[in-house]
C-alpha cells in the first residue's frame, strides 16, 4: 500500500472492471477537494455509489472519511469538485435542500434529539420520496421504537439510538444513506442487527455510503470499499479482494 505506483494501477484496474458493468450511479463524487482553512483534508477524491449498493470508506483516523460524508451532506462547505445525486448537481445546494433531494444523514453520534420523543425524532424530517417507509412499517421493522415511542429520544440505549437514526432517514425516504460508523461502541449482537438492517435497506434499492473502522463488519455488508489515506483514495477494492486482504488492512489500520 505504501508503493504508490502499484496502488494507482490497482485502482485503475478495479475501476475499469467495475465500470464495464455500466452501473447507474446514485451518488457520484468527482474531483472533490476539501479544506479546513489552509489545510487540505480531501485531495481530488472521486467515488460513486449505485442504487442498492453498499460502499464503505475505510481509513485511519484523520484520513478524511467523515469530512467526505459532511461534504456530500453540505455541512462542510470549503470544497471544490462535483457531487451529483441521481444526476442532479448538489454542490451548490444547502444541506436541507440536499436532504430533500434524497441524502439521508446518520451521524456518528447518532444525532438523536433529547428534547424530542422517539416518535417526534422519526416524524421531524419531511417525507422526500414516494418510497419512504410509512410509520407503521418503521414500527413493524423496529418494534422497540414503537414500544418506546413516547420516550425522550436519548433515553434509548446506544443500539436503539442507532436504529432510530437509521429508521428516521428511511421514514424520510432518503435514496442515499450516509452512515458514519454505525457499529461504533455497540455490542456484537447489536452490530449484527445493524448489519441485517443495512442489508434490508440495500434490498430496497437505497444506496449506502458507510464510514467504518470495523473491517470485519464492513466486509459482511459492503459490495465495494474505498481506502482513504491523507485525503486521497489510495485503494478501490471489491469485497472479495477486501476479504482476502483483511489481515493486511487490519494491520494498516492499526487494529
Amino acid at each position: 500500500m505504501s508503493d504508490s505506483t502499484s496502488t494507482t494501477s490497482s485502482v485503475d484496474a478495479i475501476a475499469g472492471s467495475i465500470a464495464t458493468e455500466a452501473r447507474s450511479r446514485m451518488l457520484e463524487v468527482s474531483g472533490l477537494s476539501a479544506w479546513y482553512g489552509e489545510a487540505r483534508v480531501l485531495d481530488d477524491v472521486s467515488i460513486d455509489v449505485a442504487p442498492g449498493e453498499v460502499v464503505t470508506l475505510v481509513g485511519r483516523n484523520g484520513a478524511g472519511k467523515t469530512t467526505l460524508l459532511r461534504s456530500v451532506m453540505g455541512l462542510h462547505r470549503q470544497t471544490e469538485g462535483t457531487i451529483t445525486l441521481d444526476g442532479a448537481d448538489l454542490a451548490k445546494r444547502s444541506p436541507d435542500a440536499r436532504a430533500r433531494a434524497g441524502v439521508g444523514w446518520v451521524p456518528d453520534d447518532r444525532g438523536i434529539y433529547s428534547s424530542l420523543t422517539v416518535a417526534e425524532n422519526l416524524l421531524l424530517p419531511p417525507v422526500v420520496h414516494a418510497d419512504a417507509w410509512p410509520l407503521e412499517k418503521v414500527y413493524e421493522f423496529f418494534p422497540v421504537l414503537h414500544e418506546r415511542r413516547e420516550f425522550p429520544g436519548t433515553k434509548l440505549s446506544g443500539g436503539e439510538q442507532q436504529m432510530l437514526a437509521m429508521a428516521r432517514v428511511l421514514r424520510m425516504g432518503s435514496r442515499l444513506l450516509l452512515l458514519d460508523e454505525p457499529s461504533e461502541g455497540l455490542a456484537p449482537v447489536i452490530v449484527q442487527r445493524i448489519g441485517e438492517i443495512i442489508r434490508e435497506i440495500k434490498s430496497h434499492g437505497v444506496a449506502v455510503l458507510l464510514v467504518e473502522q470495523n473491517v470485519k463488519f464492513a466486509s459482511t455488508v459492503a459490495d465495494r470499499h474505498y481506502l482513504l489515506a491523507q485525503g486521497k483514495v489510495v485503494e478501490h477494492l471489491g469485497n472479495d479482494d477486501f476479504r482476502a486482504r483483511e489481515g493486511e488492512l487490519l494491520t494498516y489500520l492499526g487494529m
Partner: peptide, 19 residues
C-alpha cells in the same frame, strides 16, 4: 417540534431536510 430541534442542534436539523 422544529423550533425544539433547531434549538438543540441547528446543523443536524438542516441535514434532516428542515429549512
Amino acid at each position: 417540534m422544529i423550533v425544539r430541534a433547531s434549538t438543540e442542534a441547528p446543523e443536524r436539523t438542516r441535514a434532516l431536510g428542515i429549512n
